[in-house]
Design a protein around this nucleic acid. Structure first.
Length: 403
DNA sequence: TCTGGGGTCCTAGGACCC
DNA sequence: TCTGGGGTCCTAGGACCC
């Protein structure tokens, strides 16, 4: 049976949401109407463009440009900081409105949703629903969305990416040659800046070129990725709308340091603060982790990571930190200036499913109680006030996250 | 005054086993 | 004297997404 899928994509999400939040707080200007961006903080060495207004886009500013580059492209550019708390709020408002249409909604990111409307509607009725969503979001929530209408997720997503803002587009199978094959191959979902030049060398320049390429040639050159890109180019995608909330597969946190650090003791202190934050989130998920991963980025942007599988899954701050510390020691070359340090936990399992380990001992249980006690203090008095690193300067680097 | 942070999935090579 | 081969697990790194 043919499926009916919508993809709802907020136009310039971070910028639009910042704009209406500012207006709500009495701002006289609508930053959607001027050359403006949402950017990181250059003084914290995270100065990149997160979102741009149409006028900023006309200057040639692209997402992930450095703010430095953006200012050169567009003198007089206005720059505003991001505020994820606000973004989550508006994202939830959108989600709640969409729930009136179906509960089969996959929140693909903070500003994108897939809706499975199969069994609800025929083509024409669905297009009307898409138009209604588009109109209602604008009138009731104050920002605009693009809505893509198709028979699978890939085509719905490609459709919502056509002309912007505030539009509804369809992409049915018979429309693929006109609407999709004519586009440059770089526009295809999952084709990034590494793959596109390789395709260009093979004289594959449009999505149509890719669709007409022998699948086996792509498989030989790109493996599984090659099969996938061929299928996508031909509009084939059987993946389901994942509307049930899934547990995370990994949890991590990393920081770009205010200045490069070449001192392992200092790095360890930051690693402890990261461990505290990540294990706190892990425990909130009621999960245990088996794999610990430490990432370093040098001042020259060389990334390395080392990971280790522990003998048993754990959520203990102490246990995970001791593993992380050893990984750091093992990979850090003395004197190397470090720009970024990160900690990730992978191979997560639900805590309930864990058997009581034979090696479970009094000491471990004591640690668990300690973690629990600290977590509830954090819940009660605020995350930042209760940390083991106990160093305000470092604690300030690691942001509290409410997942 | 260059170049974020949080994820997911895949690959390739080595170790080890039968 | 030549040098199996499949399978799994582990680790490091890469590609892509928003």
């Amino acid at each position: 049976m043919e499926r009916q899928i919508l993809h709802v994509d907020v136009n310039n999400a971070f910028l639009s949401w910042t704009a209406i939040d500012m207006l709500k707080n009495g701002s006289q200007i609508d930053i959607r109407e001027i050359p403006a961006i949402i950017g990181g903080d250059e003084s914290k060495r995270s100065g990149i463009v997160l979102a741009k207004s149409m006028k900023a886009k006309e200057c040639g500013i692209k997402t992930a440009d450095t703010i430095y580059q953006a200012r050169i492209k567009c003198p007089g550019l206005k720059i505003y900081p991001s505020n994820f708390k606000v973004y989550r709020e508006y994202s939830n408002k959108l989600y709640n409105l969409l729930l009136e249409y179906t509960d089969r909604i996959e929140r693909f990111s903070i500003d994108e949703c897939f809706l499975d409307m199969t069994n609800y509607l025929m083509n024409d009725a669905l297009i009307n629903k898409a138009k209604e969503i588009n109109k209602r979001v604008k009138e009731e929530l104050g920002f605009t969305v693009n809505v893509g209408v198709a028979h699978n997720k890939l085509l719905a997503k490609m459709a919502s990416d056509f002309t912007k803002p505030d539009r509804v587009h369809t992409l049915y199978e018979e429309e693929i040659p006109d609407k999709m094959w004519t586009l440059p191959v770089s526009e295809l979902f999952m084709l990034g800046k590494r793959t596109v030049p390789k395709l260009y060398n093979m004289q594959i320049k449009t999505i149509g070129d890719l669709a007409r390429t022998d699948k086996r040639i792509l498989q030989d050159k790109f493996g599984k990725h090659g099969i996938m890109m061929w299928e996508y180019a031909n509009g084939i995608d059987e993946s389901e709308v994942k509307y049930l909330k899934e547990k995370p597969k990994g949890i991590g946190n990393s920081v770009t340091l205010p200045e490069d650090i070449s001192n392992i003791e200092k790095l360890e202190e930051i690693l402890l603060a990261l461990t505290e934050q990540v294990t706190y989130r892990l425990r909130k998920q009621k999960m245990l982790a088996k794999v610990v991963n430490v990432q370093l980025r040098t001042k020259d942007f060389v990334d390395t990571s080392h990971q280790r599988k522990m003998l048993s899954a754990t959520a203990s701050t102490k246990e995970i930190f001791s593993n992380a510390k050893e990984l750091l020691k093992q990979m850090y070359r003395k004197g190397t200036p470090i720009r970024l340090i990160g900690l990730r936990l992978d191979d997560l399992t639900d805590k309930e499913e864990m058997q009581i380990s034979l090696f479970d001992n009094v000491k471990d249980r004591k640690q668990e109680k300690l973690d629990k006690a600290i977590d509830s203090l954090k819940d009660k008095y605020g995350y930042d006030l209760i940390t083991r690193a106990g160093n305000m300067e470092i604690d300030g680097l690691i942001k509290f996250r409410k997942d």
